[in-house]
């Protein structure tokens, strides 16, 4: 999951801008413009590794059901169903992580049909309905993909928050508020 995030197109923008400062900003007076400054080669040298982003994406898919399993366990671990604030937070976290994973640019290319040269041609021209459905999925995924960066940061913040929240509950820092008993 960590490697999936490290090679993500949304995070690439952030760390290339703010850690490597290539460029720091778009405005010429803000960024450190210096033609003599050596360029790290973008994604041609070490960062070529980012090209295998889609394999990290495949690796992250099996992890997603465990987030929802956690929600299930948090509701039923006492032997009866009980909805607490913690379960709601876990559910929100699971939804955001899922949305982040499925709004990925690589998924858009590989699965949603972005890599197809032609929608109607690849998926059998004699069945325009199937290509139309595929097109609909591509449109939906593209709409999700537009918010990939926001989803990336929201889900990362949530992940950290949830870990701290569960830890705090574990050491009885505050009680887990029960909503439905």
């Amino acid at each position: 999951m960590g490697l999936f995030r490290l090679t993500c197109y949304a995070y690439r923008k952030d760390y290339h801008r703010h850690i490597f400062s290539h460029p720091m900003a778009c405005r010429a007076d803000v960024r450190h413009e210096n033609t003599k400054r050596k360029y790290n080669g973008g994604e041609t040298r070490f960062f070529r590794v980012e090209n295998v982003h889609r394999y990290f994406m495949y690796a992250s898919w099996p992890i997603i059901p465990f987030f929802f399993y956690d929600v299930y366990v948090s509701i039923t671990y006492k032997g009866f169903a009980e909805l607490s604030l913690g379960s709601i937070i876990l559910l929100i976290n699971a939804i955001f992580v899922t949305l982040y994973t499925f709004s990925c640019h690589s998924l858009r290319h590989v699965t949603a049909g972005g890599g197809a040269e032609c929608f109607g041609c690849v998926f059998n021209q004699s069945q325009p309905r199937s290509s139309a459905r595929w097109g609909g999925f591509f449109r939906f995924q593209s709409a999700l993909n537009r918010h990939h960066e926001a989803l990336a940061w929201t889900s990362l913040s949530l992940l950290i928050f949830v870990d701290l929240y569960i830890r705090a509950l574990g050491v009885h820092m505050f009680p887990n508020i029960i909503l439905i008993h």
């Binding site: 690439r12 923008k13 290339h16 290539h22 460029p23 080669g41 973008g42 994604e43 041609t44 070529r48």
Partner: peptide, 12 residues
């Protein structure tokens, strides 16, 4: 490969 997805082109 030289492009490092910093999206300035998209901004302007």
């Amino acid at each position: 490969g030289y492009c490092n997805i910093t999206k300035c082109c998209q901004e302007v």
